[in-house]
């Protein structure tokens, strides 16, 4: 197994308030790391630190064995290799679906328009939305928008993907389609860090679970054990509170 991402002693505070404390973990290529924890425990903050959307005060991130020098310029280059999908449907409302997807490939990676569009179509087809290229985000349902957002991230051919509660604002009947796409990605050995409140889904795809509480990693447990046999009482309580 090759190491893709390593985080060492990461500390982050908003002003005086510590939000992440001494966070260390490793993600190997092809692995799915699921991040669980109560609301406010720092899950979003953590994965936003991993692609430089949040600055951190101390600690080191290694990406493909290389230490990340956390300058804005470096993060901008790295973000092409790190796909991220957010909770809110965050497509660009001023662009149609095709332009949403190809903006990064064309402007950032300097692909030709034809290449980028062909790849966008292929990816759209895998999520069942190949007919939607000319539509605008406002014409789509939440679930469709979220599938497009995943395609937009994949179009850059990232080395790994960050998902932050991507089904949390979806109507229940939309959730399954989005989770299926993520499960498929996992099957294809995409490296992923997934924050989710969908416990069944988490159990199904997690190679490893990071359990976060109040800015600390309370436990890091293989997925097959965490849900049946969590090591800490906090994790037990958490699973009970999630009706699991």
């Amino acid at each position: 197994m090759t190491e893709l991402l390593r985080v060492e002693h990461l500390n982050k505070a908003y002003g005086e308030v510590p939000v992440l404390q001494d966070i260390s973990f490793t993600v190997n290529t092809g692995e799915v790391q699921v991040v669980l924890g109560p609301s406010g425990s720092g899950k979003s903050t953590l994965i936003r630190c991993l692609n430089g959307l949040e600055p951190y005060q101390s600690g080191t991130i290694y990406f493909q064995g290389q230490k990340v020098d956390p300058t804005p310029k470096n993060w901008q280059l790295l973000r092409q290799k790190i796909g991220m999908v957010f909770q809110s449907y965050d497509l660009f409302p001023n662009l149609n679906i095709m332009d949403n997807i190809t903006l990064g490939p064309i402007k950032v990676q300097k692909q030709s328009k034809a290449t980028a569009q062909k790849e966008a179509l292929r990816l759209l087809d895998t999520v069942g939305l190949a007919d939607y290229t000319a539509k605008f985000p406002r014409e789509l349902s939440g679930g469709q928008k979220q599938r497009i957002a995943i395609v937009r991230a994949l179009a850059l051919h990232p080395d790994f993907m960050l998902f932050d509660e991507v089904t949390a604002s979806l109507d229940p009947e939309m959730v399954r389609g989005v989770l299926e796409i993520m499960a498929n990605l996992a099957k294809q050995k995409m490296t992923m860090i997934v924050v989710t409140h969908e416990m069944n889904f988490a159990q199904q795809i997690a190679d490893n679970v990071l359990f976060l509480d109040d800015g600390h990693i309370l436990e890091s447990t293989p997925g097959k054990d965490f849900f049946t046999n969590p090591q800490t009482d906090r994790a037990k309580e958490f699973l009970q509170s999630m009706d699991f």
């Binding site: 959307l53 901008q76 973000r79 903006l103 990064g104 937009r152």
Partner: peptide
């Protein structure tokens, strides 16, 4: 919108322009 623009690797002027 800022976050998702940055997340696909846009630089600052691209973020503003597009």
């Amino acid at each position: 919108q800022v976050d998702s623009g940055l997340a696909i690797g846009l630089n600052r002027s691209q973020l503003y322009y597009y």
